[in-house]
Amino acid sequence: MTITVKALQKTGPDQPFQVADLERRDVGPRDVLIDIKAAGICHSDIHTIRNEWGEAHFPLTVGHEIAGVVEAVGAEVSGFAVGDRVGVGCLVNSCGECDACAQGEEQECSGGKGKKVGTYNSVDVDGSVTQGGYAQKVVVDDRFVLRVPDALDFAQAAPLLCAGITTYSPIARWNVGEGTKVAVLGLGGLGHMGVQIAAAKGADVTVLSRTLAKEETALKLGASRVRATTEDGFFRTHRGEFDFILNTISADIPVDDCLGLLRPRGVMAVVGLPPEQQPVGFNALINGSKVIAGSNIGGIRETQEMLDFCAEHGLGSWVETIGIDDVDAAYDRVVAGDVLFRFVIDTATFEDAPVG
């Protein structure tokens, strides 16, 4: 048996979104059926469904920032009950047996039976292509369901399942906290969460942007100051100023110059993914014994830790809520940088929408 729900789909990269019937699998013994209340729009959704990264499987429903309410649970599920507030992020399965999975780092699953499976556009264990959260409901293995604390509004919580954990994980890994001088490079969907989280951990946060246009907003988010990287002599003036740089920019940057902003043994954690390769001079790393590190979302355990941390400290994504008819236009606005800071789809707008 299957469950039929309404979902936003594209049949090709240049086609508009349309409402379609989507078949979800029936609830198995270890499954949770979630009535989706909010679905965040991530730039990865745009890259994928516009086939900018290649290998998009159409027709396709994207969305890996999902928040909602449990509608049903399988017979073997003990951790969740009908009515619970829950969320789903970028993963819906992993092998559960490799070293990474055993350590709670499912995002680094090395494969095997039941390999790592993304929330959308990924081949599931049954050979089907996963379909994401721009829909009324989703069925997910209970191992990949998160609890959304009562303090978090669904619309604010949904983007945390990607943007929140993407920035929280490297901040936690590199022990950012009291006494740490942090620079957040870029103030977009990722950067605005990085500022909030680092500041809540007690760090002194500086936002680095091309201009001072977002200075007022950055200060409201918890930054102590904003610096414009286009100022004359910027990289010389601020050389050796920071312990930690969170690079959220998905575009070319002068990597060696940015590394020069770090103190000896400083770390630049990269979470933005530019389309082009970035050149790195080894001398910029060796001189000062500096580190450049990548970070890929986080495991389920750490994602829950992030949600609880955000609830405890009153943090959430800054969002603009839209209906299902607004998504095509929202994509163009995301690409143009015209949103503070995330769009979230109110899935209640599916209710009266005709299919087709």
Rank of each mutant, 00 (worst) to 15 (best):
I3G: 01
T4K: 14
A7K: 06
A7Q: 09
L8T: 00
G12I: 10
P13R: 14
R24K: 12
P29A: 12
D45N: 13
R50D: 15
E55L: 13
H57K: 14
I66C: 02
G74N: 06
G79L: 08
V82W: 05
V82Y: 02
G89F: 05
S94Q: 09
D99Q: 11
E105C: 03
E105D: 13
E106I: 07
S110A: 15
G111E: 12
G118C: 09
T119W: 03
D124P: 02
V125F: 14
V125M: 13
V129S: 02
T130C: 02
Q131V: 01
Y134R: 04
D142C: 13
L146V: 09
F154V: 06
F154W: 04
A155S: 13
T166Y: 06
P170K: 02
V176D: 00
G177Y: 06
E178T: 12
G179K: 08
K181T: 14
A183T: 04
V184M: 05
G188T: 00
L190Q: 06
G194T: 08
G202D: 09
L208N: 02
R210S: 15
L212S: 10
A218H: 11
A223V: 09
S224G: 15
T230W: 06
E231R: 01
G233M: 04
F234R: 03
F235T: 09
R236D: 15
H238G: 08
G240W: 10
G240S: 13
S250G: 11
D252K: 07
V255Q: 09
V255I: 14
D257Q: 15
L259R: 03
G260K: 03
R263N: 10
R265V: 12
P274V: 08
E276Y: 08
E276L: 05
Q277W: 08
G281D: 10
A284M: 09
I286S: 15
N287L: 15
S289V: 12
S289F: 12
K290N: 10
V291F: 14
S295Q: 01
E305M: 02
F309S: 06
S317K: 02
W318E: 14
W318G: 08
V319G: 00
E320W: 04
E320A: 04
I324C: 07
V327P: 03
A329E: 15
D332K: 14
L340D: 13
V344Y: 09
T349E: 01
V355D: 03
